[in-house]
Write a protein that binds this DNA or RNA. Structure first.
Lengths: 220, 220
DNA sequence: AATAAAATAGGTGTTTTCCTCGTTTTTGAT
DNA sequence: ATCAAAAACGAGGAAAACACCTATTTTATT
């Protein structure tokens, strides 16, 4: 390997990121730079010295992994994103891949596994782990090429419903949410019922858990 | 440094832990072993070759950082625990220190900071960061030496209430929770009201958010 | 054995949540 | 301009959640 693969890291947890950087270097890659979040990434990118692969955390302040990946697809199409996240989350996987990520690994893997993923993305252009291959890719597009959204809950939710979800993940009553959104309580009822139906949920606590699990609201 | 400080790592996220291990070695410590969780830690501890310091994650399956730290205090009193967690959480800090942790750092710090913390614990026996010193230590004990629990919500919650909290963070109704706990619905009402009062909460969603924020339930 | 404190449980009423049926308004496409 | 679909809104009622008050049982302490 005369020219080492150039890697950049984007993660808001400094210590974790530093450790990851050491590890990546130990796997004989070059760590071009590290960024705290999507905004920081934009600042540190250099058109004349682009990374080959970016290891991208999903949950970050300022600009998260979804937005950053989408932005990269538009502005740095040659840079390939390997999504790196804490937990397996089917919806996040789909959303990241749709936004342009070339692969997806949970942080809970062995270093050799990470090396394999990076090499695969560098040489083949993508790396879909067993998780992705087996369970998800087929669900992204239907046989006729049209989008299939059965498993992709995000595509099912519109802006108003997401806004409602965020407000519902609080101690507000529906009446208060309605007044906050300048809508009738009946309409809020409708949003709730639609979400119950779409997401297979039966109570408000279910909504809260869904919102948190899928990163629609951050609790920490 | 003729005899390097012996460090052990306990964290269920393998990749993160491996990176951390590389980093710790880079700081010239010896990594004695790594463990996936509290149970694994017990299995890997050797009476004849104990680590000086254990970097302990808080949120883990099987046996979490709280339990493990308490267990260490009883069984390996010479081993010092440095709690390592994702987010600053006042209650977790207090609970860990009370359980015997010698220090507490969020993962979002610079490597040099971690080195300073490890060295401090090794030489002085403890490391209370600005966070801990400034905001929390004074709240652990009152002037007259008695426990002051104003800021420590954990000390206010008993086992039954915590059990109830876990069940409340689901789509179960109170009636279902009551039958699950083999108690009357009235008693469950009482738990709820007690928690509302203690934690300054006004609705079940508030309970759910509290439980998640404080790591009483893990959502991912 | 007496007593205090904590845990468990009941009664009753209000508010919020959830559900089922609708109607009106807005929006978008032809 | 018209039609169809989506969004917003409404009445009314059952179930769950919340509130306030009291009573019994269990546990711990002296």
């Amino acid at each position: 390997m005369n020219q080492p693969i150039k890697v950049a890291l984007v993660d808001d947890h400094v210590l974790l990121r530093k450790g990851l950087a050491d590890l990546v270097r130990g796997l004989d890659y070059e760590v071009l730079f590290e960024a705290d979040n999507g905004m920081d990434l934009v600042a540190k990118l250099d058109k004349d010295n682009q990374p080959d692969i970016i290891l991208m955390d999903i949950n970050m302040p300022n600009r998260d992994g979804f937005e950053s990946t989408l932005w990269l697809k538009e502005n740095y199409p040659l840079v390939r994103v390997l999504a790196l996240t804490m937990y397996e989350d089917e919806d996040s996987v789909i959303r990241m891949i749709r936004n342009g990520a070339r692969g997806y690994v949970v942080k809970d893997i062995e270093p050799q596994h990470l090396k394999y993923a990076i090499d695969a993305i560098y040489s083949k252009g993508f790396y879909y782990s067993d998780l992705v291959t087996g369970k998800l890719v087929h669900s992204l597009w239907d046989k006729d090429g049209s989008e299939k959204s059965e498993y992709n809950v995000f595509s099912k939710l519109n802006d108003r419903e997401i806004h409602f979800l965020k407000l519902a993940t609080s101690e507000m009553t529906y009446k208060e949410i309605a007044s906050e959104m300048n809508l009738s309580v009946r309409t809020i009822d409708g949003y709730r019922d639609a979400l119950f139906d779409k997401l297979n949920i039966k109570s408000r606590v279910g909504l809260v858990l869904f919102a948190i699990r899928h990163g629609i609201v951050r609790v920490n």
